[in-house]
Protein backbone atom coordinates (compact mmCIF):
# COMPACT_ATOMS: atom_id res chain seq x y z
CA UNK A 1 0.00 0.00 0.00
CA UNK A 2 2.79 2.35 0.92
CA UNK A 3 4.62 1.56 -2.24
CA UNK A 4 1.51 2.13 -4.25
CA UNK A 5 1.07 5.56 -2.76
CA UNK A 6 4.64 6.55 -3.37
CA UNK A 7 4.35 5.35 -6.94
CA UNK A 8 1.26 7.39 -7.38
CA UNK A 9 3.14 10.40 -6.20
CA UNK A 10 5.89 9.82 -8.71
CA UNK A 11 3.36 9.26 -11.47
CA UNK A 12 1.66 12.50 -10.60
CA UNK A 13 4.82 14.35 -11.40
CA UNK A 14 5.47 12.62 -14.66
CA UNK A 15 3.64 15.14 -16.82
CA UNK A 16 6.40 17.66 -16.27
CA UNK A 17 9.22 15.28 -15.73
CA UNK A 18 10.48 13.49 -18.84
CA UNK A 19 12.30 10.96 -16.66
CA UNK A 20 8.93 9.89 -15.27
CA UNK A 21 7.79 8.96 -18.76
CA UNK A 22 10.71 6.60 -19.01
CA UNK A 23 10.04 4.96 -15.69
CA UNK A 24 6.28 4.47 -15.88
CA UNK A 25 4.72 2.67 -18.83
CA UNK A 26 1.12 2.77 -17.71
CA UNK A 27 -0.60 4.20 -14.74
CA UNK A 28 -4.19 3.99 -13.62
CA UNK A 29 -5.50 6.66 -11.31
CA UNK A 30 -8.48 6.49 -9.01
CA UNK A 31 -10.43 4.09 -11.18
CA UNK A 32 -14.05 3.68 -10.11
CA UNK A 33 -16.41 1.34 -11.91
CA UNK A 34 -19.97 0.22 -11.16
CA UNK A 35 -22.14 -2.25 -13.00
CA UNK A 36 -25.89 -2.19 -13.14
CA UNK A 37 -27.39 -5.61 -13.59
CA UNK A 38 -30.62 -5.46 -15.53
CA UNK A 39 -32.47 -2.31 -16.44
CA UNK A 40 -33.44 -1.19 -12.98
CA UNK A 41 -31.04 -3.22 -10.87
CA UNK A 42 -29.00 -1.74 -8.07
CA UNK A 43 -25.64 -0.46 -9.19
CA UNK A 44 -22.85 -2.64 -7.88
CA UNK A 45 -19.48 -1.14 -7.10
CA UNK A 46 -16.81 -3.24 -8.79
CA UNK A 47 -13.69 -1.12 -8.55
CA UNK A 48 -13.32 1.45 -5.83
CA UNK A 49 -10.61 4.04 -6.31
CA UNK A 50 -7.93 1.78 -7.73
CA UNK A 51 -4.60 3.30 -8.65
CA UNK A 52 -1.49 1.59 -9.88
CA UNK A 53 1.68 2.25 -11.80
CA UNK A 54 3.43 -0.17 -14.04
CA UNK A 55 7.10 0.43 -14.63
CA UNK A 56 8.60 0.14 -18.05
CA UNK A 57 9.72 -3.43 -18.72
CA UNK A 58 8.07 -4.67 -15.58
CA UNK A 59 5.97 -7.82 -15.27
CA UNK A 60 3.00 -6.99 -13.04
CA UNK A 61 0.52 -9.65 -12.01
CA UNK A 62 -2.91 -8.67 -10.77
CA UNK A 63 -4.45 -11.25 -8.53
CA UNK A 64 -7.58 -11.23 -6.48
CA UNK A 65 -10.52 -13.33 -5.40
CA UNK A 66 -13.34 -13.67 -7.92
CA UNK A 67 -15.49 -10.57 -7.82
CA UNK A 68 -12.51 -8.34 -7.17
CA UNK A 69 -12.85 -6.79 -10.63
CA UNK A 70 -9.35 -7.74 -11.76
CA UNK A 71 -10.50 -8.49 -15.29
CA UNK A 72 -12.54 -5.30 -15.35
CA UNK A 73 -9.47 -3.35 -14.32
CA UNK A 74 -7.47 -4.85 -17.18
CA UNK A 75 -10.26 -4.15 -19.63
CA UNK A 76 -10.36 -0.54 -18.50
CA UNK A 77 -6.61 -0.29 -18.99
CA UNK A 78 -7.12 -1.74 -22.48
CA UNK A 79 -9.96 0.74 -23.02
CA UNK A 80 -12.34 -2.07 -23.88
CA UNK A 81 -14.46 -0.66 -21.11
CA UNK A 82 -14.62 2.83 -19.73
CA UNK A 83 -14.33 3.74 -16.08
CA UNK A 84 -16.99 5.78 -14.31
CA UNK A 85 -14.26 8.04 -13.05
CA UNK A 86 -10.51 8.02 -12.97
CA UNK A 87 -7.95 7.90 -15.72
CA UNK A 88 -5.57 5.56 -17.44
CA UNK A 89 -2.37 7.18 -18.62
CA UNK A 90 0.09 5.68 -21.06
CA UNK A 91 3.16 7.43 -22.35
CA UNK A 92 2.05 10.51 -20.44
CA UNK A 93 -1.26 10.72 -22.33
CA UNK A 94 -4.70 9.73 -21.14
CA UNK A 95 -6.01 6.59 -22.81
CA UNK A 96 -9.44 6.82 -24.41
CA UNK A 97 -9.58 4.02 -26.94
CA UNK A 98 -7.93 0.68 -27.67
CA UNK A 99 -4.54 1.08 -29.19
CA UNK A 100 -2.02 -1.11 -30.92
CA UNK A 101 0.46 0.12 -28.31
CA UNK A 102 -1.21 -2.18 -25.82
CA UNK A 103 -1.73 -5.66 -27.20
CA UNK A 104 -4.25 -7.91 -25.57
CA UNK A 105 -4.05 -11.67 -25.01
CA UNK A 106 -7.43 -13.18 -24.19
CA UNK A 107 -8.39 -16.10 -22.01
CA UNK A 108 -10.59 -17.31 -24.86
CA UNK A 109 -7.66 -16.81 -27.30
CA UNK A 110 -9.80 -14.52 -29.52
CA UNK A 111 -8.60 -16.18 -32.73
CA UNK A 112 -10.74 -15.76 -35.82
CA UNK A 113 -11.88 -19.27 -36.74
CA UNK A 114 -12.19 -18.40 -40.43
CA UNK A 115 -8.62 -17.18 -40.74
CA UNK A 116 -5.70 -19.58 -40.79
CA UNK A 117 -2.91 -19.27 -38.22
CA UNK A 118 -0.62 -16.96 -40.16
CA UNK A 119 -3.52 -14.69 -41.17
CA UNK A 120 -4.61 -14.49 -37.55
CA UNK A 121 -1.16 -13.29 -36.55
CA UNK A 122 -1.08 -10.88 -39.51
CA UNK A 123 -4.45 -9.40 -38.54
CA UNK A 124 -3.23 -6.47 -36.39
CA UNK A 125 -0.62 -5.66 -39.02
CA UNK A 126 -3.12 -5.69 -41.88
CA UNK A 127 -5.37 -3.45 -39.80
CA UNK A 128 -2.56 -0.92 -39.71
CA UNK A 129 -1.97 -1.23 -43.44
CA UNK A 130 1.37 -3.08 -43.30
CA UNK A 131 2.22 -4.60 -46.68
CA UNK A 132 1.45 -8.28 -47.05
CA UNK A 133 5.02 -9.50 -47.56
CA UNK A 134 6.26 -7.58 -44.56
CA UNK A 135 3.34 -8.71 -42.42
CA UNK A 136 4.00 -12.33 -43.37
CA UNK A 137 7.65 -12.03 -42.43
CA UNK A 138 6.83 -10.50 -39.06
CA UNK A 139 4.15 -13.08 -38.37
CA UNK A 140 6.56 -15.93 -39.20
CA UNK A 141 9.15 -14.50 -36.84
CA UNK A 142 6.69 -14.22 -33.99
CA UNK A 143 5.26 -17.68 -34.55
CA UNK A 144 8.80 -19.06 -34.37
CA UNK A 145 9.46 -17.04 -31.23
CA UNK A 146 6.49 -18.55 -29.41
CA UNK A 147 7.55 -22.01 -30.54
CA UNK A 148 4.93 -22.84 -33.16
CA UNK A 149 6.19 -25.02 -35.99
CA UNK A 150 5.90 -23.58 -39.52
CA UNK A 151 3.77 -26.49 -40.74
CA UNK A 152 0.82 -25.13 -38.74
CA UNK A 153 0.80 -21.78 -40.55
CA UNK A 154 -1.99 -22.81 -42.90
CA UNK A 155 -4.05 -24.62 -40.26
CA UNK A 156 -7.24 -23.20 -38.88
CA UNK A 157 -7.56 -22.58 -35.15
CA UNK A 158 -9.95 -25.45 -34.51
CA UNK A 159 -7.29 -27.87 -35.72
CA UNK A 160 -4.90 -26.78 -32.95
CA UNK A 161 -4.82 -27.67 -29.27
CA UNK A 162 -5.68 -25.01 -26.73
CA UNK A 163 -2.05 -24.49 -25.80
CA UNK A 164 -1.07 -23.99 -29.41
CA UNK A 165 -3.96 -21.63 -29.97
CA UNK A 166 -2.79 -19.48 -27.10
CA UNK A 167 0.72 -19.48 -28.54
CA UNK A 168 -0.85 -18.02 -31.68
CA UNK A 169 -2.69 -15.47 -29.52
CA UNK A 170 0.61 -14.51 -27.95
CA UNK A 171 2.35 -14.32 -31.34
CA UNK A 172 -0.42 -12.04 -32.57
CA UNK A 173 0.04 -9.73 -29.60
CA UNK A 174 3.82 -9.71 -30.13
CA UNK A 175 3.38 -9.00 -33.85
CA UNK A 176 1.88 -5.62 -33.04
CA UNK A 177 5.28 -4.66 -31.62
CA UNK A 178 3.37 -3.11 -28.72
CA UNK A 179 5.42 -2.16 -25.69
CA UNK A 180 2.73 -3.35 -23.35
CA UNK A 181 1.10 -6.77 -23.25
CA UNK A 182 -2.20 -7.07 -21.45
CA UNK A 183 -3.01 -10.65 -20.56
CA UNK A 184 -6.39 -11.66 -19.22
CA UNK A 185 -5.98 -15.06 -17.55
CA UNK A 186 -4.24 -16.26 -20.70
CA UNK A 187 -3.74 -19.80 -19.44
CA UNK A 188 -7.02 -20.11 -17.58
CA UNK A 189 -8.59 -22.31 -20.24
CA UNK A 190 -5.66 -24.72 -20.45
CA UNK A 191 -4.90 -27.94 -18.59
CA UNK A 192 -2.30 -27.91 -15.83
CA UNK A 193 0.65 -29.36 -17.76
CA UNK A 194 0.13 -27.19 -20.80
CA UNK A 195 -0.21 -24.20 -18.54
CA UNK A 196 3.13 -24.87 -16.91
CA UNK A 197 4.92 -25.21 -20.25
CA UNK A 198 3.37 -22.02 -21.55
CA UNK A 199 4.23 -20.13 -18.39
CA UNK A 200 7.87 -21.04 -18.92
CA UNK A 201 7.72 -19.97 -22.55
CA UNK A 202 6.02 -16.70 -21.62
CA UNK A 203 8.75 -15.94 -19.10
CA UNK A 204 11.38 -16.55 -21.76
CA UNK A 205 9.62 -14.50 -24.44
CA UNK A 206 9.05 -11.59 -22.08
CA UNK A 207 12.66 -11.58 -20.95
CA UNK A 208 13.87 -11.67 -24.56
CA UNK A 209 11.59 -8.89 -25.78
CA UNK A 210 11.66 -6.74 -22.63
CA UNK A 211 7.94 -6.04 -22.79
CA UNK A 212 5.90 -4.44 -20.09
CA UNK A 213 3.32 -7.03 -19.07
CA UNK A 214 0.16 -6.83 -17.03
CA UNK A 215 -1.13 -10.29 -16.28
CA UNK A 216 -4.49 -10.95 -14.66
CA UNK A 217 -4.64 -14.34 -13.00
CA UNK A 218 -6.28 -16.22 -10.20
CA UNK A 219 -3.37 -18.64 -9.96
CA UNK A 220 -0.94 -17.70 -7.18
CA UNK A 221 1.85 -19.91 -8.52
CA UNK A 222 1.54 -18.32 -11.92
CA UNK A 223 1.77 -14.86 -10.40
CA UNK A 224 4.80 -15.68 -8.26
CA UNK A 225 6.50 -17.56 -11.06
CA UNK A 226 6.22 -14.80 -13.61
CA UNK A 227 5.82 -11.44 -11.93
CA UNK A 228 8.20 -8.82 -10.62
CA UNK A 229 5.40 -7.43 -8.50
CA UNK A 230 2.00 -8.78 -7.58
CA UNK A 231 -0.94 -6.46 -7.07
CA UNK A 232 -3.43 -8.09 -4.72
CA UNK A 233 -6.96 -6.77 -5.11
CA UNK A 234 -9.50 -7.07 -2.33
CA UNK A 235 -12.93 -8.40 -3.19
CA UNK A 236 -16.30 -6.69 -3.70
CA UNK A 237 -15.55 -3.86 -4.36
CA UNK A 238 -12.00 -4.23 -5.66
CA UNK A 239 -9.46 -2.05 -3.93
CA UNK A 240 -5.69 -2.21 -3.96
CA UNK A 241 -4.84 -4.52 -1.07
CA UNK A 242 -1.11 -4.71 -1.25
CA UNK A 243 1.64 -4.78 -3.79
CA UNK A 244 4.02 -7.64 -3.18
CA UNK A 245 7.56 -7.55 -4.49
CA UNK A 246 8.63 -10.90 -5.81
CA UNK A 247 12.25 -11.00 -4.88
CA UNK A 248 13.34 -14.03 -6.84
CA UNK A 249 16.38 -14.00 -9.13
CA UNK A 250 15.96 -13.62 -12.90
CA UNK A 251 15.99 -14.93 -15.54
CA UNK A 252 13.54 -17.33 -13.99
CA UNK A 253 13.07 -19.60 -17.01
CA UNK A 254 16.62 -20.84 -16.52
CA UNK A 255 16.08 -22.51 -13.14
CA UNK A 256 13.34 -24.23 -11.17
CA UNK A 257 11.71 -21.31 -9.43
CA UNK A 258 9.55 -23.50 -7.23
CA UNK A 259 12.66 -25.05 -5.73
CA UNK A 260 14.07 -21.67 -4.71
CA UNK A 261 14.13 -21.25 -0.91
CA UNK A 262 12.27 -17.94 -1.05
CA UNK A 263 9.45 -19.26 -3.18
CA UNK A 264 7.24 -20.78 -0.44
CA UNK A 265 7.57 -17.64 1.60
CA UNK A 266 6.35 -15.32 -1.16
CA UNK A 267 3.63 -17.73 -2.11
CA UNK A 268 2.35 -18.02 1.44
CA UNK A 269 2.38 -14.25 1.87
CA UNK A 270 0.20 -13.75 -1.22
CA UNK A 271 -2.08 -16.59 -0.17
CA UNK A 272 -2.52 -15.11 3.31
CA UNK A 273 -3.51 -11.78 1.77
CA UNK A 274 -5.99 -13.41 -0.55
CA UNK A 275 -7.46 -15.66 2.08
CA UNK A 276 -8.09 -12.82 4.47
CA UNK A 277 -10.08 -11.00 1.77
CA UNK A 278 -12.04 -14.03 0.80
CA UNK A 279 -13.15 -14.74 4.35
CA UNK A 280 -13.76 -11.07 5.04
CA UNK A 281 -16.24 -10.70 2.26
CA UNK A 282 -17.90 -14.06 2.37
CA UNK A 283 -19.72 -15.07 -0.78
CA UNK A 284 -18.80 -13.18 -3.90
CA UNK A 285 -20.45 -13.01 -7.25
CA UNK A 286 -18.24 -14.19 -10.06
CA UNK A 287 -16.75 -11.52 -12.28
Amino acid sequence: MRENLSKKASAAGQGENPDGVDAVAISARNIVKTYTIGREGKPMLVLDDVSLDVRRGEFLAIIGPSGSGKTTLLRIIASLESADSGQVIAQGRPVTQPSAERAMVFQHFGLFPWKNIIDNVKFPLKIRGVKDAEATAIARDQLRRVGLKPQFEQSHPHQLSGGMQQRVGLARALATDADVLLMDEPFGALDAQTREVLQGDLARVCAQTSKTVILVTHDIDEAVLLADRILVLTAGPGRVGEIVDVDLPRPRWEYDVRAHPKYPEVRRHVWDLLRSHITEDGANDGD
Partner: peptide
Protein backbone atom coordinates in the same frame (compact mmCIF):
# COMPACT_ATOMS: atom_id res chain seq x y z
CA UNK B 1 -15.39 -11.82 -27.86
CA UNK B 2 -14.08 -11.73 -31.41
CA UNK B 3 -15.48 -8.23 -32.00
CA UNK B 4 -13.60 -7.17 -28.92
CA UNK B 5 -10.42 -8.89 -30.01
CA UNK B 6 -10.57 -6.95 -33.28
CA UNK B 7 -11.32 -3.75 -31.44
CA UNK B 8 -8.38 -4.27 -29.10
CA UNK B 9 -6.14 -4.07 -32.16
CA UNK B 10 -7.67 -0.74 -33.10
CA UNK B 11 -9.70 -2.03 -36.02
CA UNK B 12 -12.10 0.51 -37.51
CA UNK B 13 -15.81 -0.24 -37.98
CA UNK B 14 -15.22 -1.02 -41.66
CA UNK B 15 -12.30 -3.30 -40.84
CA UNK B 16 -14.38 -5.03 -38.18
CA UNK B 17 -17.16 -5.59 -40.72
CA UNK B 18 -14.76 -6.93 -43.31
CA UNK B 19 -12.60 -9.13 -41.11
CA UNK B 20 -15.01 -10.24 -38.40
Amino acid sequence: KLLEAARSFQATELQIIRHV
